[in-house]
């Protein structure tokens, strides 16, 4: 019991602290790959600190919804981090919400963000909201199908139970999970505003999605939104680890020592994942916005195909 709660708190702390670092790491890798001088790994932190200390400027016609949205979005991402097993799967909170609820949480965050973007009534805000919802309605079912494939294998929709089952099996590669992994990667890129779909570094008005929604935010609200984005990336990475490379995640009845072992392994995984992400972003070009549905439809179909392959091969 004590171990479980320690695990829960530890995991939350790790997520909150490591998420900005992961973002910093991806940016660093990207800079290296593109022959630029890399920004500091700690830049996201410094950025938040700076923003927290500033006075917030709200648009004259901002409604309470606009002010509440950063908190809700941030809160959803923190709660999501409490569900996903990154260090150990003995999470008391994971009983409260399974993977479907997790997808629902992401949807909550997305919806609040889109509504907040529409609140001020700028052209960019509504454009961002529309595009984000467009990406979202394709990415969400794809993610759900990825999770379904995994849950058909482990006959559970709880992420902790899924990673537990997958870790305890021998080192066998499930063909269905190969499909799911590809689909998941595509969804991850799209949902985290990464390059083929969106560009996290751009402020070129006509191409942005995520940034367009945050244009009117400043100071602590902006910091919370950005931290939430970092957490989202971390959460997605953690989901990917739990589904596809669960080795190293401490099991359900593991002790504190195993949790400590799990931490460096998680760090290694995050480093690799960040590097791979930077590589993908460097190698690919941004898609036209109306190619994005095609991109996501591919993800969706791959996820469904994964499910079919599982049904046929039984593995």
């Amino acid at each position: 019991m004590i171990v479980a709660f320690t695990n829960q708190l530890l995991e939350l702390a790790v997520a909150l602290l490591a998420a900005p670092l992961l973002l910093g790491w991806v940016n660093q890798c990207r800079a290296w790959l593109q022959n630029r001088r890399a920004p500091s790994l700690w830049l996201p932190y410094r950025n938040y600190r700076k923003l927290f200390h500033k006075d917030a400027v709200l648009a004259a016609n901002a409604s309470p919804l606009f002010r509440a949205a950063p908190y809700v979005v941030f809160g959803s991402m923190v709660v999501a981090a409490a569900i996903i097993p990154s260090l150990g799967s003995a999470l008391p909170f994971s009983r409260v919400a399974d993977a479907i609820a997790l997808v629902g949480l992401f949807a909550t965050a997305r919806m609040f963000m889109a509504l907040a973007a529409m609140d001020i009534g700028t052209a960019f805000g509504t454009l961002g909201a529309r595009r984000e919802m467009m990406i979202g309605f394709l990415a969400e079912p794809a993610l759900l199908m990825v999770i379904f494939t995994a849950s058909l294998i482990s006959s559970s929709t709880s992420l902790a139970a899924i990673s537990d089952t997958l870790v305890s099996r021998e080192l066998a590669i499930y063909p269905s999970l190969a499909f799911a992994a590809i689909a998941f990667l595509l969804v991850l890129l799209a949902e985290n505003a990464r390059i083929p779909v969106d560009n996290p570094a751009t402020h070129l008005e006509l191409t942005m999605i995520h940034e367009a929604m945050l244009l009117e935010y400043s100071a602590r609200h902006l910091a919370l939104m950005e931290w939430a984005a970092a957490l989202k990336l971390f959460n997605y990475a953690a989901i990917g680890f739990a589904l596809f490379i669960p080795w190293g995640i401490a099991g359900r009845d593991a002790g504190l020592v195993e949790l400590l072992y799990a931490a460096p392994l998680l760090a290694v995984k995050l480093l690799c994942a960040g590097a791979v992400l930077a590589l993908i972003e460097t190698l690919s070009a941004k898609l036209r916005i109306f190619r994005a549905p095609e991109f996501l439809a591919t993800a969706f179909l791959f996820a469904v195909l994964g499910m079919l392959v599982h049904l046929l091969l039984g593995s």
């Binding site: 927290f52 200390h53 500033k54 006075d55 917030a56 400027v57 709200l58 648009a59 004259a60 016609n61 901002a62 001020i120 009534g121 700028t122 052209a123 960019f124 244009l215 009117e216 400043s218 100071a219 602590r220």
Partner: peptide, 10 residues
């Protein structure tokens, strides 16, 4: 930190 209102940035 405080809070103030201004025209939308856009």
């Amino acid at each position: 930190a405080g809070e103030r209102r201004a025209a939308a940035w856009d």
